[in-house]
Design a binder for these strands. Structure first.
Lengths: 187, 187
DNA sequence: GGCATAAGAAACGTCAAAGTTTCTAAGGAG
DNA sequence: CTCCTTAGAAACTTTGACGTTTCTTATGCC
């Protein structure tokens, strides 16, 4: 690989930083490990960001900008749900998990979970709304049974599972959530 | 203060460790700071626990044992659940914030909240087991419908709510979980 | 093609905290 | 009263990562 510069190099570094963050967490992320993962060296990073905190902030902000989820449209409620949950599951840490990964960052900078949550969630629309609307139109779903809590249930359970285990959730768990918890409640 | 020994000393150290953990989080807790807070010195700690991880584990286990919830026995499944969830909820910050405080520990040991919870609960029956067994004996509950996931559902949902909001959960939410999600699934 | 700019390698100083060693003296058991 | 265990103080070694410096060399622009 040739020697990269400018924007291309910066993008590679921030991607490497994000990967390190999601795999190892803030505390175990080192500037060196990010540099190596990006195939470059420390001074290159320090020329761009003053310290580790700024580097991680930049990586999170960048990743967040690229993170919009469009819910799958497979023709059935069950299919939509499983596809969307699977994609969320594979896409990497949720904000909730991120807060765990970033806990060391919070402690260090004395900022708070609430602050990050506000900025990142601003103006975002839940992916479940769209899936549920389509299912109601198809007549697969009784809107009377669909309280906000029940509509959010599959996503809450997936997130809870992900937070507790800090690992990707098994596909069978996603199916179990949909087939044995959510669907029985809505039909 | 006289020179303490044995059990009294150990208790003071673990309490200091817990306090440091809740105030500063795992990453910012140092063995030195715990020793000083307990009014003793590092070697005393290292004679008891091999390293920082073991020290923190011991502090968490101890605290958890002291906070143990014995599930209420109100005579009905619904009553038991609501009483127990409410009590858990009122212990409030403990459950939700612990995982944030321990984030550094998780990253370091490559374990997760789920695993720590297993060691903490080792050998003990979880609170939900007892409630569910009583309900089966009373004939309130069809054991065939009670998969492990469904049995854990009310507790998972409460914990998820607490983690996301980092605030005490409203009593109506607890009732909603029990009445619109859990009970409809098991009868 | 030549030059300014920035990448990349290597090694360095610094520092905080882990974990250890050594020694002194307190306090309980007999 | 004496002794044996162990608390407690202080200083030490080690480790790992931050952040820096220096120097070489690749890249793109004119």
């Amino acid at each position: 690989m040739g020697r990269r510069r400018g924007e291309a190099l910066e993008a590679a570094i921030l991607e490497a930083a994000w990967d390190e963050l999601s795999e190892r967490g803030y505390a175990n992320l080192t500037v060196d490990s990010v540099a190596q993962r990006a195939g470059t060296s420390k001074p290159v990073l320090y020329r761009r960001w003053a310290d580790k905190q700024e580097l991680v902030e930049a990586a999170v902000v960048r990743r967040d900008a690229a993170q919009q989820v469009t819910p799958a449209d497979t023709g059935s409620l069950r299919g939509d749900l499983i596809a969307t949950l699977t994609e969320l599951n594979e896409r990497g840490p949720y904000l909730a998990q991120l807060s765990l990964l970033l806990a060391g960052y919070f402690a260090e900078t004395e900022t708070s979970f609430a602050e990050l949550r506000r900025t990142v969630l601003a103006g975002r629309r839940s992916g479940s709304d769209e899936i549920m609307e389509r299912a109601v139109e198809r007549g697969e779903l009784d809107p009377a049974k669909l309280t906000p809590r029940i509509a959010a249930l599959p996503f809450d359970l997936l997130r809870g599972e992900a937070m507790m285990t800090l690992r990707p959730v098994a596909p069978e768990v996603i199916e179990e959530i949909v087939d044995t918890v959510f669907l029985p409640l809505v039909r």
